[in-house]
Design a protein around this nucleic acid. Structure first.
Lengths: 156, 156
DNA sequence: TATATGCATTAATGTAGATTAAGAAATCTA
DNA sequence: TAGATTTCTTAATCTACATTAATGCATATA
């Protein structure tokens, strides 16, 4: 149970790393993401205070995701092998989130996905740049920008 | 451990059901899917022989997915509460599959997703109608059809 | 303080895939 | 066997979002 201070932009884990850990966020904000063949980043998850950010791979498999800090943060690194923290309900919850994400990507418009995002994670929006929200939603920053101004216009 | 015979089109589980089980496929083919607000089906998973098809919700939560049989099948229903079958590696594997699906939906074209599908599940293609493959890929049957003929043309 | 770098917005143009519609082929069912 | 139903294909049109590019602003760095 070691508490670690990390600075904004610090990378905790890279794709391909072995012996990856889980990171419990005490304060600050982490994210996990991939980089595709075209060099484009795709954000999987934002991890604010209280969340656990991890790449769900078995302890000794090479990991799939990058994890870095979006703000200066204090985190606790947890060994994946220590079984006391393997909470099956967390796994199930994560699967449901991912299932839901797949449904959203297949059936909802970018606009719907944005509405869903701001109602689910209202506190995240102020803390991360727009292009990262776009990356999470699976659209370009430009598309998000015009989507937002349409939204404003239609509300007033 | 009860072995059940189910006929094609038989529904094993509906969204909202409580006390859902896991289904191990001995022979035949199952699928899990959702129906969105517009009434459109989205297939999550095809489950041929040897696979376990389940909705990853906690034993007593209402489930999210429909599960039905695409072929006459023989299956074994497994209680979720029986902890002997809770294999963490299976959960992790499922999460990775879903993670990968999210990446694919966000970064790959329909054509890339189709190529990926046929190389990952080559045996499924002959067994299910095209519109279900399309549903799995997140495109319309028409889009899949034209995509296939383009593919043929470019190969010969 | 000046200059570079990152970020958000807007507009024009392009394109993947949706929608609609119609017809042919295959499969089911009476 | 005949009609109904499901499946697949093709083609025309439409639209959501990508791409490209230009501009303004904020933040970082020398």
């Amino acid at each position: 149970m070691k508490k670690i201070k990390v600075l904004k932009k610090q990378i905790l884990q890279r794709k391909g790393d072995l012996y990856s850990k889980s990171y419990k966020v005490e304060s600050g904000l982490l994210r996990s993401y991939t980089i595709d063949e075209k060099g484009k980043e795709h954000i999987f998850m934002f991890g604010p205070e209280g969340w656990i950010v991890t790449d769900y791979v078995s302890p000794n498999e090479p990991c799939e995701l990058y994890i870095d800090a979006l703000e200066d943060s204090v985190i606790v690194a947890i060994e994946k092998t220590s079984s006391q923290d393997i909470d099956l309900k967390k796994f199930i919850k994560r699967i449901r989130v991912l299932q839901n994400r797949v449904i959203m990507l297949m059936s909802a418009t970018a606009s719907d996905r944005y509405e869903h995002f701001i109602s689910t994670y209202p506190n995240i929006i102020q803390r991360v740049p727009q292009h990262m929200i776009a990356s999470y939603l699976g659209i370009t920053p430009e598309a998000l920008s015009s989507l937002k101004s349409q939204r404003l216009r239609s509300k007033q």
